[in-house]
């Protein structure tokens, strides 16, 4: 057996999952450092999953004060009112998360991290941003890419009963085990900017419609200078207008981005908890794969829509 052994405590606690991914992956997990920014329902689910899995450390970033809104899909915020006054979502969540697994270090990072220098991101192996604006996604992704160290970058969004994950593992090598055969694989990922710049007309016809719908709303919030999720049903007409413009610019058919889907995505500001659980679960699995270097990672988008129940992987890169 190579490397140091897991402690007796670790072996007892992680018994069932070591049976899934092995001791070696467990060891790598325990040495990984993860940054999670934007603690909405999906991110909370994700945090729970990786803390239970036994990563080395998790840094939380969300300066919003604890309000009823933040409570909606958040099981990390206890409902004892008074004691939470003046605390941020990240502070309260970090307390609850520490409880889940004492072997994981949980800390809080304050401030707008999208304005931080690249060095800041170099402290982490994995950076996850949840419910970020288009501009902020771009910025953080570019900073992660500037580092000599490979930092895995993920964005995760949940609008109504739909969810999206974007993955950037840059140049990524891993071992794949399928049907008792092990193969070495190599993948090249585009950045977020490169991926969303791929002309829609060149994408496969049967691509998930969610991809286009998410881009339209993201762009809408960007040009209107709104924060994530600040779009509502009253904006539908303007959103549809932007959809038409984007489809024309991309020489794509408007039927790719149905009115009903756009209407659904902006219907309410809240996330649908079962979808948070599904997306947060898939994201957790993806991060565990990336850290352990085992198993096919998603390249490079994942979509889930509770309405049809499909969880689909789409490869959106110019060389796809």
């Amino acid at each position: 057996m190579k490397g140091e052994e897991l402690t007796e405590q670790e072996t007892a606690l992680y018994d069932r999952q070591i049976r899934v991914w092995g001791v070696d992956a467990q060891r790598r997990l325990s040495k990984s450092h993860i940054l999670v920014s934007g603690l909405r329902g999906t991110a909370i689910e994700f945090c729970k999953n990786i803390v239970l899995a036994g990563v080395g450390s998790v840094a939380l970033n969300d300066d919003r004060p604890v309000t009823e809104e933040a409570l909606s899909a958040n099981f990390l915020i206890p409902s004892d009112g008074e004691t939470l006054v003046g605390k941020t979502v990240a502070e309260v969540c970090s307390e609850s998360l520490k409880d889940f697994n004492p072997m994981v270090r949980v800390s809080v990072e304050k401030g707008d991290i999208s304005s931080y220098g690249a060095d800041f991101f170099g402290k982490f192996d994995v950076v996850v941003v949840c419910c970020y604006s288009l501009a902020a996604k771009r910025m953080v992704n570019e900073k992660c890419r500037k580092l000599s160290k490979h930092v895995a970058f993920y964005t995760v969004d949940c609008r109504d009963s739909c969810g999206e994950i974007f993955v950037d593992l840059q140049d990524y090598a891993y071992t794949k085990k399928k049907f008792d055969e092990t193969t070495e694989c190599q993948l090249h990922y585009p950045s977020f900017e490169e991926a969303i710049s791929v002309p829609w007309s060149s994408l496969p016809k049967r691509l998930s419609k969610l991809y286009f719908a998410m881009r339209v709303i993201e762009r809408f919030e960007d040009v209107e200078n709104r924060r994530y999720g600040e779009t509502s049903s009253v904006d539908l007409a303007s959103v549809l207008k932007l959809r038409t413009e984007l489809c024309q610019a991309n020489s794509a058919n408007e039927s790719q981005v149905p009115d009903s889907l756009l209407g659904r995505l902006i219907a309410g500001p809240s996330e649908f908890p079962p979808v948070c659980a599904v997306i947060g679960g898939i994201l957790g699995q993806e991060v565990i794969k990336a850290i352990s270097g085992k198993g096919d990672p998603v390249k490079n988008f994942f979509f889930f829509d509770a309405a049809d129940g499909k969880g689909v992987i789409e490869d959106i890169s110019s060389n796809a």
């Binding site: 069932r16 999952q17 991914w21 079962p274």
Partner: peptide, 15 residues
């Protein structure tokens, strides 16, 4: 012993 991880259980519970 059945192999078990949190993520799959979370996904299944959502479904």
């Amino acid at each position: 012993i059945v192999h078990a991880v949190a993520t799959t259980n979370a996904i299944i519970a959502g479904l």
